[in-house]
């Protein structure tokens, strides 16, 4: 029996009929319902320097943000049952290192990444390590469930920012920025300002909640953040643009926090004395989600209807229409683009 799958073309991607894989010990086979396109998929689609350098095998199946149903259990799997609806936690921990044993499985030093070091889930079926299959509560519909993985990054960033009661500036209104802003509102931020150079993205943001939108091409950082009543206590950086953080950091308040989520293609140049040391500010990296604290918090916020992220889902296509989906996702015309196998 074969299955539809989308494999890397290095560059590009193509549809391919693959054999349905068999779950090994500690793994499960899932039938994929929806998979969302992530920035990582776009990097691999474009086959940029980063993608070419991380050891993705030829013909690897793309995709990692999905909702799926467990259809077969590998040997020794007791944590899941047939029919369970699950999401995939992308970071596959070794479960053995000191980080894994101290609540930091998400940054396990031996971790593998689902869909980079394994086949992914732009396919009818996928094999997932049981430790990474997260059961989805019934109240969350399939389309929202398919974006819980990136939503978790935003929740994690807002948790690291300790945003309650604070003025928060989120740099970038792509999916991660948008989710960070939504999570900041949900976790009780005093105010949230979100920036992007694309107004289409800011429009989506304004539909997700009561946040201030800021296009730095139209309003300068000093006009937006320069007064005492507007200077942020927390900056969540999701753009990977040196200019974005360099222009904003001078306005961070004393004892402020920068949650760094975005990845830069080169070094970022920061005035550490003026902006971090003299202010006793903190710059902290954020990567992925805590297993499973972030997922628990996210599900609670969704249950309480505090996380309004549905407007982020701007497009849905059949897997066969992946080219249009990738075009829309990478141009910034859409925010989250879903593909159904």
């Amino acid at each position: 029996m074969g299955m539809k799958s989308l494999i890397t073309g290095a560059p590009g991607a193509r549809l391919h009929t693959a054999a349905i894989p068999e779950p090994r010990q500690g793994e499960v086979l899932v039938r994929v319902k929806i998979t969302a396109i992530c920035g990582t998929d776009i990097h691999i689609f474009n086959w940029n320097k980063w993608a070419a350098g991380i050891g993705i095998k030829p013909g690897n199946i793309l995709g990692h943000e999905c909702v799926a149903e467990v259809v077969k259990l590998g040997e020794g799997v007791e944590s899941l049952a047939l029919g369970d609806r699950v999401c995939i936690e992308t970071h596959i921990p070794c479960e053995d290192c000191s980080l894994c044993k101290n609540g930091n499985m998400h940054i396990c030093e031996n971790k593998r990444i689902f869909s980079l070091h394994t086949d992914g889930c732009f396919a009818e079926y996928a094999v997932v390590p049981a430790v990474c299959a997260r059961k989805v509560p019934d109240f969350i519909p399939d389309d929202l469930a398919s974006i819980l993985e990136p939503l978790g990054v935003g929740v994690h960033a807002a948790q690291v920012g300790n945003v309650q009661g604070k003025r928060v500036v989120v740099l970038g209104a792509g999916p991660i920025g948008l989710f960070s802003a939504c999570a900041s509102l949900a976790l009780g931020a005093h105010s949230v300002t979100i920036s992007d150079v694309k107004n289409t993205r800011l429009e989506v943001a304004s539909m997700c909640g009561d946040m201030h939108i800021w296009n730095p091409l139209e309003i300068s950082a000093s006009a937006m953040l320069g007064s005492r009543s507007s200077a942020p206590e927390v900056i969540i950086e999701t753009t990977g643009s040196n200019q974005a953080i360099a222009e904003t950091l001078p306005y961070l308040r004393e004892k402020g926090k920068v949650a760094m989520v975005g990845l830069y293609s080169g070094d970022v140049s920061l005035n550490l004395s003026r902006d971090v040391i003299y202010k006793e500010a903190t710059v902290e990296g954020v990567h992925g989600r805590l297993m499973w604290d972030t997922w628990d918090v996210m599900e609670n916020l969704l249950l309480e209807k505090k996380l309004n992220v549905r407007p982020a889902i701007t497009h849905e296509f059949a897997l066969e229409d992946y080219e249009e989906g990738f075009r829309i996702a990478s141009s910034g015309e859409g925010t989250k683009v879903l593909l159904k196998p």
Binding site: V261, V268, L270, L272, R274, K279, T282, V283, E284, V286
Partner: peptide, 27 residues
């Protein structure tokens, strides 16, 4: 971060992000 840095310091933030390191200003 105790030492007073020069005006601008280039930082490879991927190391900070992937390993969730914290740079903490001390004055």
């Amino acid at each position: 971060m105790v030492g007073i840095a020069a005006s601008y310091t280039p930082i490879d933030t991927t190391k900070v992000v992937f390993a969730e390191k914290e740079l903490i200003g001390v004055r």
